[in-house]
Design a protein around this nucleic acid. Structure first.
Ligand code: FES
Ligand code: FES
Lengths: 162, 162
DNA sequence: GAATTAAGGATATATGTTATCCGCAAATGG
DNA sequence: CCATTTGCGGATAACATATATCCTTAATTC
């Protein structure tokens, strides 16, 4: 069970977009360069964010992406699910139905107890991510990243933002 | 991010082994037949349980598997990690290091804030599984599975247990 | 009109999951 | 001793998914 690297990319891109001044856009090219990522493939991750209505886009030179909502109104789970999908990590294939001691055509009233426990853990994972807002991340980063790097980065970004 | 089907298999097999009388063994063949699974491949999952010291084995006819500990001393996480591995679901590839505004050779004191949040969610998932004992599952199953099927199943199992 | 952008389709490559097969050593029962 | 059965590990193939690149299209800017 491993998350796509797209998840890391999308989260970092959102953190950058969160620091973008109102009304400006940042292109795939800039985001790819800033993070050292393949532009074409990063584009797919950003498209996922767009389809999930987490970001807005505009075309042409000076086009790109910006957040569709305030960073305090976006949580981690939304970003993760946008690129990773909403499917649960555990899928029950109903192997209990293969028990030879079962009457043919017998139908279970509840999902299997094993699956319910696995789904409970899955929900705990989601709930943890749901509780973290994008603004929380930006707050932590702005404290932990050395001030000069932080400043230089957004200077770099603004130079490329349309 | 999706768990292997082996996880479902291993959990169901452990539930059956938990109901096995002291000192008896159940073979891969019987477990595969009971759950309608490919014997050779299920064997890999059981080998994982064996390597994790969750089950004990014996060879020859009348050989097979039995739990190495009491069901109340085994939790879900141990079983899941035995087949799925202990690696975290989120892997940080340190894309922050590619930031062109970073001084060359600069070294971070902490893991990235993004990774820490993702790992926190991962830990919440693990903690949920850690809290569920194999005996809890057996308790739930014995309540939910219709009594006649439950009885027939263990009759079927005992007929094949060495 | 020329350049730039996001979007989406097609395709290739790498990796991981699922599955099967085989040979080996240990245990059982005759 | 011998035939059978078992778990174990290695090798291999089939299949799915993740990663990555390329190309076309339409919108936007200047
Ligand atoms: S049958 Fe799928 S988890 Fe029990
Ligand atoms: S650099 Fe990997 S999560 Fe931030």
């Amino acid at each position: 069970m491993i998350l796509k690297s797209q998840v890391e990319w999308a989260l970092h891109c959102c953190a950058i977009l969160a620091g973008l001044p109102e009304g400006r856009y940042l292109s795939t090219k800039a985001l790819a360069e800033l993070h050292g990522l393949p532009k074409e493939y990063l584009s797919k991750a950003l498209q996922s964010l767009s389809q999930a209505s987490l970001v807005e886009t505009t075309l042409g030179p000076s086009g790109g992406y910006r957040l569709a909502r305030a960073p305090s109104e976006v949580n981690f789970l939304e970003i993760v699910e946008a690129v990773e999908g909403k499917a649960r990590s555990f899928t029950c294939t109903n192997i209990r139905e293969n028990n030879p001691c079962r009457p043919a055509g017998y139908c279970d009233s509840k999902p299997c107890a094993v699956a319910r426990i696995m789904w409970e853990a899955d929900e705990a994972w989601r709930e943890t991510l749901r509780r973290v807002r994008l603004s929380d991340l930006v707050g932590t980063l702005s404290e932990e990243v050395p001030p000069d790097i932080w400043r230089d980065t957004f200077e770099w970004v603004l130079k490329r933002a349309g």
